[in-house]
Structures are given as structure tokens and as C-alpha cells.
Design a protein around this nucleic acid. Structure first.
Lengths: 129, 129
DNA sequence: CTGGATCCTGCACGATACTG
DNA sequence: CAGTATCGTGCAGGATCCAG
């Protein structure tokens, strides 16, 4: 299982607004983030968990159109990347509770901005159709 | 050429922090955003352009590992989605200048958060290797 | 210099069936 | 309930060559 972006290499501080420095310094960390969040379902899963700990079937119901296979697969990757925690209760039948790790919660500001942009974008697209 | 997320449908206001409402209301706009930004290169291209208008070959040099084919393809999609402007100068040889539209610039906050998270993440990963 | 045309490959993702 | 196993497929994206 691949854990890290194979291109991980350098490091530097900077913010996207203002400075003139080489944009590749910005691009690399963004690509690192995209790598961990890659795929169609990781952000939806994370969002689902920011609204409370959930069980597998609960998430499967809440996330539109996701399949069991993809849910299981992406949850596994998110767990490996320590964004998601998995807790098994030895009841019958088995019950599994998923939750965000503290690290996972640090994605919240980024998700929030994406959400806000998405809302605007949706308005723009629907408006002119 | 597909322009819009085929699942475009509803709309509502909300922010990711705080409220209790159904998370699917959050998921949909985020997926809309991801749809427009999909692929390995769209954000890197946009970032490159937030640091100034660029010509094709300039971007090809600045964005690590991108191929001419992908650069052309993704620029086309970004132009269709009105995030990027394309201006042709009738010189010999032809010169083309790309720039962000005002709309494209509205992605800045989201990119900035992704960048900040990416920097932290890179530190975390490199730290424990 | 700015791309387009072709060819090729892997893998992301879906569908369906099955299990402890 | 919480997944796994298997199969099939499209398409994203790389490599290479060509063109106005």
C-alpha cells in the first residue's frame, strides 16, 4: 500500500496571497494534499465524519451513490494516513464506529473553503443554464 | 466536452463548522468544486497563474513533470470553465498569454488552505520517515 | 513557440455476488 | 452488520511524433 506522495522532497514557508517567489514552492505542498485526498470519495467521507462518528452502513447511506466497496477501500486508506479512526465493538452483530482523528479535523478549514467555493460555483452554473 | 457536474441539483446555505444539518448538503457543493478541479494538474496550473500571466512554455517549465499534452488539455478545460483566459498575440512565432479570470481568482482562499495543510502534512510525513 | 494526433497502459471505480 | 472477492470498463494521463 502506498502511503506517501512519491515526490515528497523539499520544504519551505509561504502563503498563496502576496509574495513573488517561485510558484513551485506552492505547488508541491498542494500536490501533497491532493495526493492524500485523491479520489472521488475521500472528502465526502471526511465531511460525513465531521458531522459525528458514524457506522459503516450509516455512511453508506449518507454519502450519495457511494458503493460499499469504495467506502471500505477509502476508509482503509484514510485510516492508514491517520485521518480516520476505526473502533470495533464486539457485539453481535459486529459494530464498527468510524471517527475523525484530531489530525483529520485539521482539514476542516480547507474543506470549508472548498465548500464555499462550490456553493458559489453551483449558483453560477445553475443560473445561466 | 462535459462542462458541468452531472449531479448538479439542489442548493442551500451552510458552513462546515458548527451546524448539525445533513452532511449531504455539504458534500454536494464540495463535489461540484472537485469536479471542476479534477485531475492531477488543474490546481498546479491555477497556482502557476496566480503568480502572474504566463506563456505556454513558461508554464510547462514551471510546473514540475507536466507534459505539453496535459498542459494543453487542462488549460482548455479551465478556459471552458472560465477560470482561465487565453490571449493570442499575432507575432512570429505565435505567442499565447494565459491568465486567471476574476472568477479563477476566487479559488485563492481554498488553494491557500490546501497549501497550508499540505505544508503541515509534509512536515508530519517527513518527520517520521 | 504552441500545441494537435496517436498510441498505449494502468488503475479508479462500478456491479454483483458472497461471507463471518 | 461490515465488509471481501471477482470481474469488467472507461478514461486519465504518459510517451512520442508531427505541424502551423
Amino acid at each position: 500500500m502506498k502511503l506517501n506522495n512519491p515526490d515528497l522532497k523539499n520544504d519551505k514557508k509561504q502563503t498563496t496571497s502576496g509574495k513573488k517567489e517561485s510558484c513551485t514552492k506552492i505547488i508541491q505542498p498542494v500536490q501533497d494534499a491532493l495526493y492524500v485526498l485523491s479520489g472521488k470519495w475521500k472528502l465526502p467521507i471526511i465531511i460525513s465524519l465531521t458531522y459525528g462518528n458514524k457506522r459503516f452502513s450509516q455512511m453508506a447511506r449518507e454519502i450519495p451513490k457511494i458503493t460499499d466497496r469504495m467506502l471500505a477501500k477509502e476508509l482503509r486508506e484514510l485510516e492508514i494516513n491517520q485521518l480516520v479512526k476505526r473502533k470495533v465493538y464486539d457485539s453481535i452483530p459486529v459494530m464498527v464506529e468510524y471517527s475523525l482523528t484530531e489530525y483529520g479535523k485539521t482539514l476542516n478549514p480547507a474543506i470549508d473553503e472548498l465548500y464555499k467555493w462550490g456553493v458559489q460555483h453551483r449558483k453560477k452554473i445553475i443560473g445561466k443554464d
